[in-house]
Design a binder for these strands. Sequence first.
DNA 1: ACTTGACATCGTAGCAGTTCCTATGTAGTA
DNA 2: TACTACATAGGAACTGCTACGATGTCAAGT
Lengths: 154, 154
Amino acid sequence: MKRAAGAEHEILRSAGLRVTPQRVAILKLLRGTRAHPSPEMVYRELKPAYPGLSLNTVYQTLHALEKAGVLRRISMEENVYRFDANVAPHVHLVCRGCGRVDDCNGDLEPLLEHLGREVAARCAWDIRAQDSCFYGYCPGCRSEGKPPKPREEV
Amino acid sequence: MKRAAGAEHEILRSAGLRVTPQRVAILKLLRGTRAHPSPEMVYRELKPAYPGLSLNTVYQTLHALEKAGVLRRISMEENVYRFDANVAPHVHLVCRGCGRVDDCNGDLEPLLEHLGREVAARCAWDIRAQDSCFYGYCPGCRSEGKPPKPREEV
DNA sequence: ACTTGACATCGTAGCAGTTCCTATGTAGTA
DNA sequence: TACTACATAGGAACTGCTACGATGTCAAGT
Ligand SMILES: [Mn+2]
Ligand SMILES: [Mn+2]
Ligand SMILES: [Zn+2]
Ligand SMILES: [Zn+2]
């Protein structure tokens, strides 16, 4: 293999997108985090190093990268977009206390794919994407004395 | 069993909520539809029969019923709330063409519960709810010549 | 290296969905 | 029937996202 630096450059090029400092920075940030940042979070994170950066550019770049399949957009109860550079099948955990979004570790891909096949077999839809989110309280928020209510919906 | 009429009345009472015409109407609508309506849809649907109805009341009622566990709120790519009186485990299908939200028929509950157990076993979170959405094109939109792209994310 | 055109960025204005505020109204209890 | 805590209506305010137009810049081709 060759250099690791410049990976973002190549990803952008092979997606048919021009390489700009903003896009490289945004993509690098996404590929280097597990926080599933929202557009605002991306903006706040990069603004110090790129004072000229526009929030609008963040939105446009995230859109372009999503359309190219480099990123995926996930939706949750807060009605705020969050982005993920990991486009492989995995489950998301969303904390109702602090809002953090984690990946669920452990190989659940077989289960997710099985579920996908079952759904595709049961409906006449043209399925393009699938999203499994679990809501609750992360270890940090749980220890802060959140009410231990019973299980609700599924 | 007793009467079917007045079911909404009893549901509201046992949820500790006052019974008002607005609440009965909203709950009855939700319990009688499979469209997973948004607050706006509920409002537009009921406004003719209840000219004095306020959109704000729709929001507040939906919130109260969600908090009581009578309704569940589902989130999807459009960043618009949609509500469901069916709080039992089931998969949702979301059309990227027309925006409709369907339930996936066929008993997938065992699979969903299995997935839930696996997730709970793999993380230290206090899980309270779970949501599985599939995105694509419904039969109607599919026949209108949508582009047949390959499968993407999971 | 220079030119050049298509594409990207920026700032701002606009929009839609949701929440906040408060005066008025009403359900449920005694 | 009277009272009070809770619910409603209307509108203002807020938020995240998108549209628009002027300016800037990447990269292909000379
Ligand atoms: Mn993820
Ligand atoms: Mn449903
Ligand atoms: Zn938390
Ligand atoms: Zn459709």
